[in-house]
Amino acid sequence: MGRVKVKKKDVFIDMTAMSDVTVLLLTFFMLTSTFLQKEPVIVNTPSSVAEVKVPDSNLVTVLVSPKGKVFLSLTGSKDSTYSSEKMRLSLLESVTAEYNKHYKTPVSFTDQQKVTFARSTVIGLPISKLGEYLDLLGQNKVEKADELTDPEKNPNAGIPIDMNEDLNNPNEFQIWMNALYDLPGDAAFYDDIISGKAIALKADKSTPYDVVQVVMDNLQTLKMNKFTFMTALKTEK
């Protein structure tokens, strides 16, 4: 008796349709996505029923870590005349000038450092230490640079801030924030600061109130009485 030959079937699944779907999905994700910004501390914001979205342009985020370290990030307008890079560049220039007016040890930045600063997203060091950080970033030593701004690894991370109501002797946080008023050009940015849309306070749920109060008091001193709290969405029961 002859063996029954099992016919070998060619198992070939047509992947074209699958490929179509994945490409569509990919396009969707690419177009809708905004990348997670790298932040020196991970904060878990509390939730609220507020429905106003965070603006994607003309925004200064004041990030407050649970231990009271303060970080700033600046997003410029969509208009390329006042893009984030250009605004950061002029911010650094006016801050340097202002800092040298009030502090005894003057700082200055090289052109290379300035360019690096314009590209970096987070400001989170005393001005005197900023040069070192920018050098590391410029040499692509991102990990080492991140260590500098990480409050878990560097006790000097964060922008120095204290209770101070005398703007003739401003602390560094006040210098940074005050410089925002005179950023050249974009009138919309100034209006947004005045109306409170442009300043967002982002802090962790567990942050003690005294830490938040220092920041709020500073903003009040700077006449930035209106600002927003960044929160996550909560659905009302």
Binding site: A50, G196, T231
Partner: peptide, 11 residues
């Protein structure tokens, strides 16, 4: 994120 607007009294 959502934002919650607040105005503090002037100093």
């Amino acid at each position: 994120s959502q934002t919650l607007q607040i105005s503090l009294p002037s100093n």
